[in-house]
Design a protein around this nucleic acid. Structure first.
Lengths: 108, 108
DNA sequence: TTATTTACCTTGTAATGCAAGGTATTTGTT
DNA sequence: AACAAATACCTTGCATTACAAGGTAAATAA
């Protein structure tokens, strides 16, 4: 994955990081992201993304009964997903460094 | 601009920052970005983006003769562009903080 | 005069973010 | 029992983006 494509994939990486820590379901993720300071990631963004990541075998899912509502689809990381998360973190470091360099160099 | 749209706009902000510092032309920008650690931003990405930013009145351009080749289109920031750069930097700080929080929280 | 380098721009494609809408399940209320 | 409300999932269609690939033009060098 190039730096460029990473631009579009920051959310992907964040989801992987959250899923690695605890099994979560999509609806919950939308709320968690709010807590982390990302506002306005709608379900229309999150569900397609989760499905894409499953297709790419970065995550797996299992349905579990809810106490209040329909079944929840819980996601966990695969080994491939963990490896992708690792790569993402490296790319994020690089991007962060590059952007900060531009911003501090060029705007003193 | 929401956080989400900012994801797509990191390059925009970096261009604004570079242009603020020195008048540059598009072809040159592609090379400068390499130096800053962003590899593989092609002209097909940069020219349309510059034209979009001009349409949005964030930059202006003037043609100047080159010593070796066709005329160069030099870009400078407008006041609106400076203000947009300021906003971008704030959004970038927020995004950076959010992503880093997720990554350190969730992957200990 | 032909090739090379510099420099700009356009077209078409794939992927993204998202608003808007739709479906299904459980619990609580009337 | 009937209905509303909350939970939870998914789809559709649109605008935007990144970009490869190609095209144009100007200056210099061979």
């Amino acid at each position: 994955m190039s730096t460029t494509q990473m631009m579009k994939g920051i959310l992907d990486g964040c989801l992987l990081a959250i899923i690695k820590d605890t099994e979560v379901y999509g609806y919950e993720l939308a709320e968690k992201l709010e807590d982390y300071g990302f506002h306005s990631f709608s379900e229309g963004t999150i569900y397609p993304l989760l499905m894409r990541m499953q297709k790419e075998e970065l995550v797996t899912s299992t349905l579990k009964k809810s106490t209040a509502g329909p079944r929840r689809k819980y996601y966990s990381l695969t080994e491939k997903g963990e490896s992708e998360l690792q790569h993402f973190m490296e790319r994020w470091q690089t991007l962060q460094a590059s952007v900060n360099r531009v911003l501090s160099d060029e705007t003193k």
